[in-house]
Design a protein around this nucleic acid. Structure first.
Lengths: 399, 399
DNA sequence: TTGATTTGTTGCCTACGCCAACATAATCCC
DNA sequence: GGGATTATGTTGGCGTAGGCAACAAATCAA
């Protein structure tokens, strides 16, 4: 039982947390709104905001907002000079970006690598870019940490990549390695789980408590879910492998060697083949899907939509979400025939669960995993604002 | 965003809650253990226990427990005269029981009904029994409320049974009806979800944070899950329909008209047929399964085990639980060939997720849903111990 | 300008968890 | 058996942080 008692310090931390989280999610909020949402007293909010200002995590913006009669309320914002560094490791590239606590992607750079990336090379590549970024930062910037989105199963407890089939990694202690190379606190998680969190915090599932998220790229289908406001993690952090759910007795295998799974039935490569692409960006593929007249292609698209719809119906039965968010080329499938996908989903789902569920495309595009990975260090920061461990660009710890 | 601020009262409620919850779950706990687990100060625990005693929700037991050197610690227990009334509505019977806050099923009675039960008749039947039980209770008993386990989808927010196919109920406001008939606070939820919670709180998944639960009876297969310590509910309360997950393209339909679902492939009726039973209690069926030599029966059992294993592998991929708990005749399948079921589950699950998962049989037997349904009113009571609304047997509100 | 309304500020109050000192009841060891 | 040790219960006082009330400030409506 993880039932911890609460003392006064915990209360203060909790209240600071919820204020800071709100600033983080919405960028800036008026004080009166803070009192309304939190249910705390005006004077308490005032005190909390002051403390966050002293911690240099928030500041009052001049632009007061008049919402009708009465004295206008001050706007409070998260600062822009507290940042997280996001890393996304992929088969052929590593992307490194900087995200501000106020919820903006400040920079993003995709570093191409050739051949299968070894963990060592990936870390070296990312660490070098991080060092460069830090050398260019102003001295008043403070870094909350590094968040890494990994296309595979991550043991969150010790930062070990348990298995990343597409990268060919097994039991790689990526967290400790990156921490060693950068001197920064490092957090990692599965890419799709982080994508889910990003869409919930900043994208098309904002403010929702129950979300199912599916992301399909060249490496297969990943999934994530928000359950009652919390990210689905499971006992060891491996939960949410929605692409590896078996929905058919077929023999086609997915990237993990399982047959009949959603991932084996909804394959980007199959679409590339039929359009005779060697490789293509999502935008090209999307354009082709939107304009194709080929009967063969339409047949394949319909088959994929049917399989996806079946998978979604299962997830709806299991999670009863408010919204299903699709990302990657799944959005192209959805746009190709929205009605078909929705119908397939409804056919397989029990009445009550699907009644209100809607399907949406992801909003965050190529920033998705920059936002997502940044949520890991920011989450740590937000959960204990007054004990946060921040680092200056030059490497000194800063309070 | 449901982020509420916390004031001092909330802290007190929270601390009272966790102490009371611990008493409820374990029956009795020593004070020293309370301080250790909660992390609160000895004097604070002392104060909290006193308050719970004043509220007549807990009392100190004489039996001090010596755990080695040092002054022995007092045992604190939940009282036995605060009770919840559990109701389980089924196709052919309604079961009504009384469960104490200290975690004991004090009584249980199965009331047979003939023909499809209308909601009105079920309520009347249960209300009559509840009135009888109340008339027999001592005057110092206090009732936390009525919990109803319903074999179907329940909209938790307003206590409406959205759909219970086996009972033939659609949009039945069972909560308000029962509340009207008894004058007690009424809570309801899906039977399998409640079974899951019961096994987590008192059965074979005790103290675990991530649990998948499958219950199969004559009415099909229901499921529930515990995710990060919280019951899986979904946006409207319809989550956890694990029996209706499609795992095959087959044509057999389940009780909700969906084909290829786990429920359609693992059917109790099929086993009854093959053993030429008209109907049978789980014990009879279990004995027959354990002793059969019939090749046809063995083939069917293996097919069912394979289907179940496939379903479980999906749930393991999705939830990454510590344990999978099986109830109803699924335990017979499990016992028939444990190895086969485990292997099937592992084959379909990704390595990392299945490494540590174990399959267990439910422990609570026929008390399962009595415990489960009681958790609803008790959960309400425990979440706000000092504002609890308790009722005397004679119907007066008692503080 | 005056009144109404909402928000920010200030000083005081109080609830409740913590702490330290002491009392108590067991085991351990000679 | 009796002192030493150890763990727990008890008591009184302290400090912190959220609530509250009164007042100031900034808007809108006349």
């Amino acid at each position: 039982m993880l039932v911890q008692g609460q003392n006064r310090e915990d209360v203060r931390q909790h209240n600071l947390s919820i204020v800071l989280r709100m600033l983080h999610l919405r960028g800036s909020v008026s004080r009166s709104e803070l009192t309304a949402v939190t249910g705390l007293n005006r004077s308490t909010i005032s005190d909390l905001v002051s403390e966050l200002e002293e911690l240099k995590l928030a500041h009052e913006t001049d632009g007061a907002v008049a919402s009708g009669v009465g004295r206008p309320s001050h706007m409070v914002s998260a600062v822009e000079n507290v940042v997280a560094i996001s890393v996304h490791t992929e088969f052929d590239a590593t992307t490194v970006g900087v995200v501000s606590l106020s919820g903006k992607v400040l920079s993003k750079k995709r570093l191409l690598s050739s051949g299968k990336p070894t963990p060592e090379n990936s870390v070296k590549l990312a660490a070098k870019e991080i060092a460069r970024l830090r050398s260019e930062m102003k001295s008043d910037v403070r870094i909350a940490g590094v968040g890494i989105a990994v296309p595979g199963q991550v043991r969150v407890s010790d930062g070990v990549v348990r298995l990343a089939p597409h990268l060919g990694w097994v039991e790689v202690p990526l967290g400790p390695m990156m921490s060693q190379a950068t001197g920064l606190p490092v957090f990692l998680d599965n890419d799709a789980s982080l994508g889910c969190m990003a869409e919930r915090n900043f994208g098309s599932a904002r403010e929702l408590s129950d979300v199912v998220f599916l992301y399909a790229g060249s490496g297969g289908i990943g999934g994530g879910a928000i359950v009652d406001g919390h990210q689905l993690r499971g006992a060891a952090g491996y939960a949410g492998e929605l692409g590896h759910v078996r929905i058919s007795a077929g023999n086609a295998k997915d990237y993990s060697g399982l047959s009949g799974t959603l991932e084996s039935l909804v394959r980007r490569d199959d679409l590339l083949d039929i359009f005779k692409f060697d490789s293509a960006a999502d935008e090209e593929l999307d354009a082709e899907i939107g304009s194709t007249k080929s009967a063969k292609a339409i047949k394949l698209l319909n088959e994929q939509i049917d399989a996806l719809g079946l998978g979604l119906s299962n997830f709806v039965n299991i999670f009863n979400p408010q919204v299903v968010v699709l990302a990657g080329f799944l959005t192209s499938l959805f746009r190709f025939d929205e009605e078909r996908l929705i119908n397939r989903m409804r056919e397989g789902a029990l009445g009550a669960a699907h009644e209100r569920v809607v399907i949406r495309s992801a909003e965050l595009g190529s920033d998705l995993l920059m936002f997502g990975a940044a949520e890991l260090p920011f989450g740590d920061l937000i959960s204990r604002p007054s004990n946060a461990k921040l680092t200056t660009p030059k490497g000194k710890g800063a309070k």
